[in-house]
């Protein structure tokens, strides 16, 4: 249990934390949602999507990697930060090819759910319409790079949890893309399998199991039932309760 003596100020609340806990983890444990996309609290943080940026004692930091310190003043739910999170989310939409009406991840997708919750009606920026390769070679898994937000979760999870190193990043800057470890570069020739955590934890529709398109009808899907913030906090607290009692 958190040491009740140690707290920091998050917006208008005192948030308790354990030594070594990040601002993000302490906030979520206290039921305060901080938007995030590249981070999945079940795995190591990466601080690359920057949606979880908060202002700590006047300076911006990614809350998913920033340690909580007693007495610090943290701002998260401010109009400025909400605007910035909207811009970051719009950027993720325009750099890829995110076609929600044609995507079977719709309703389960964290990018989409984040955008809903931030109240984003449009992409605002020029869309890049990049040409990215779709890899449908594997009998059970599809890699649709059009929908990839480069969060790197598959790379990290395949390395540290699945112990397979199926995925890596190549390219640089706006040309960064996922590569698959196999002689052909195709999923079918790799060691990936349908129960890989790397595949199952893709926050968007980039890595998906085939033949699962209509497992849950539209309207009944994860984020049709609950806001991303509520769902995410509830999951986090359940995991915390399991780990720390």
């Amino acid at each position: 249990m958190p040491d009740s003596k140690k707290t920091f100020q998050l917006d208008d609340r005192e948030v308790p934390f354990r030594e070594g806990q990040t601002i993000f983890d302490a906030a979520m444990a206290a039921g305060i949602f901080i938007p995030h996309l590249c981070h999945n609290p079940d795995f190591e943080p990466h601080s690359s999507c920057r949606l979880c940026t908060v202002i700590v004692n006047g300076r911006p930091f990614a809350s998913c990697t920033q340690p909580a310190v007693a007495g610090q003043m943290v701002q998260s739910n401010t109009p400025e930060l909400r605007d910035m999170r909207r811009m970051l989310t719009q950027m993720l939409f325009v750099e890829g090819n995110h076609n929600c009406p044609g995507c079977i991840k719709s309703g389960h997708c964290r990018l989409q759910a984040t955008a809903y919750e931030l109240g984003i009606p449009d992409n605002h920026y020029q869309q890049f319409f990049p040409l990215r390769e779709v890899d449908a070679s594997h009998p059970g898994i599809i890699l649709d790079r059009d929908r990839c937000i480069l969060c790197g979760l598959c790379v990290r999870i395949s390395r540290s949890v699945d112990k397979k190193n199926v995925f890596a990043m190549t390219g640089r800057g706006i040309d960064t893309t996922i590569v698959v470890d196999s002689p052909s570069g195709l999923l079918v020739d790799s060691t990936v399998s349908v129960d890989d955590q790397a595949v199952l934890n893709c926050p968007v529709g980039a890595l998906m199991l085939k033949r699962m398109a209509f497992d849950v009808p539209f309207g009944d899907r994860t984020y049709d039932q609950a806001l991303y913030s509520e769902d995410s906090v509830a999951r986090f607290q359940a995991t915390e309760a399991n780990r720390h009692g």
């Binding site: 950027m91 325009v94 750099e95 920026y125 020029q126 480069l150 040309d175």
Partner: peptide
């Protein structure tokens, strides 16, 4: 900067491209 952005974080990866455009 568009050419040299490493591509890790959203604001720099996409921002440098948008700014160049």
């Amino acid at each position: 900067f568009k050419h040299e952005s490493c591509g890790l974080c959203t604001p720099c990866r996409v921002g440098t491209s948008l700014l160049a455009g």
